[in-house]
């Protein structure tokens, strides 16, 4: 029987988020307590840390995986900025699978001697997101310079990609704000506080409060998502294989992620 349904996971995440917020602000996110009691048949439970941009696809993948692997229960998936997750893992958080939004943060984990041979499982490209109706009349990257534009901070994966894209196209933009993650950029655009922001293509897929524009040169700046199993927990490698397999790939594609091959070299 499956106890870790997405609904239960969502409730957990909600509770955890609430506790965190009360404690001050989003900082350390410890391992969440799963609903471990009961007559569960699974012989192994997994704790997964995944980049925030993977939330919708990994919720679905987890559901499909549980159906195929009743012997492995997914205890919890922590979604957060890749660098926050990487720090938690290096500092000893009990995590069995790590899916990062970039190779730099995966390297933080592997350099600490954790994880075996990360594999690129998806890629993402950038789009310009504008509020419905496009009040700032933004059509291209060049228009961003004259509009209230919000970008990711250059330290985080989406910000590094944004900086590369703008540099490639010879555009200089002074951001009204440098957000800590791509979700924050999208929220500022949805709220109408920003005329435009650079976000991942997957962030605007199925999002009806914003319009998106694929800017020139977007295809050349590809963000690669690596995944790895950490430690010896049985089932961890099964989950990684499932993500890399046909079902995982199909779900990722449905959410707008690109083929892993697109980013294999960079």
């Amino acid at each position: 029987m499956r106890r870790s349904t997405p609904a239960a996971l969502r409730t957990l995440a909600l509770l955890a988020a609430g506790t965190l917020a009360l404690a001050g602000c989003a900082g350390q996110q410890g391992a969440q307590e799963g609903e471990a009691e009961g007559s569960a048949s699974p012989t192994s439970t997994l704790t997964i840390s995944a980049a925030a941009s993977l939330q919708r696809s990994f919720d679905e993948i987890a559901q499909e995986f549980s159906a195929e692997h009743p012997e492995t229960a997914i205890k919890a998936i922590s979604y957060d900025g890749s660098s926050t997750l990487a720090t938690q893992i290096v500092e000893g958080a009990p995590v069995d699978v790590f899916a990062s939004a970039d190779e730099k943060n995966m390297a933080v984990v592997t350099d600490a001697g954790l994880g075996q041979d990360p594999v690129i499982f998806a890629t993402n490209t950038l789009v310009i997101a504008v509020p419905s109706g496009n009040p700032g009349k933004v059509q291209s990257l060049a228009d961003l310079a004259g509009a209230t534009t919000v970008l990711c901070a250059p330290q985080v994966p989406c910000g590094a990609a944004s900086a590369r894209l703008l540099e490639n196209q010879g555009v200089s933009v002074k951001a009204a704000s440098q957000e800590q993650n791509v979700t924050a950029v999208l929220q500022k655009v949805i709220a109408g506080e920003a005329d435009a922001g650079l976000v991942y293509a997957t962030d605007v897929a199925g999002q009806d409060k914003v319009e998106s524009i694929v800017p020139a040169g977007a295809a050349e700046v590809v963000n690669s998502y690596p995944i790895t199993a950490l430690g010896e927990q049985p089932g961890a490698q099964d989950f990684v294989d499932f993500v890399l397999g046909p079902k995982g790939r199909q779900i990722l594609e449905e959410h707008g992620f690109g083929d892993a091959a697109a980013g294999a070299d960079g």
Partner: peptide, 12 residues
Amino acid sequence: IYTAFNGAGDGR
């Protein structure tokens, strides 16, 4: 501080 923390590696 949070921005620096988010920079992987030497940002810490």
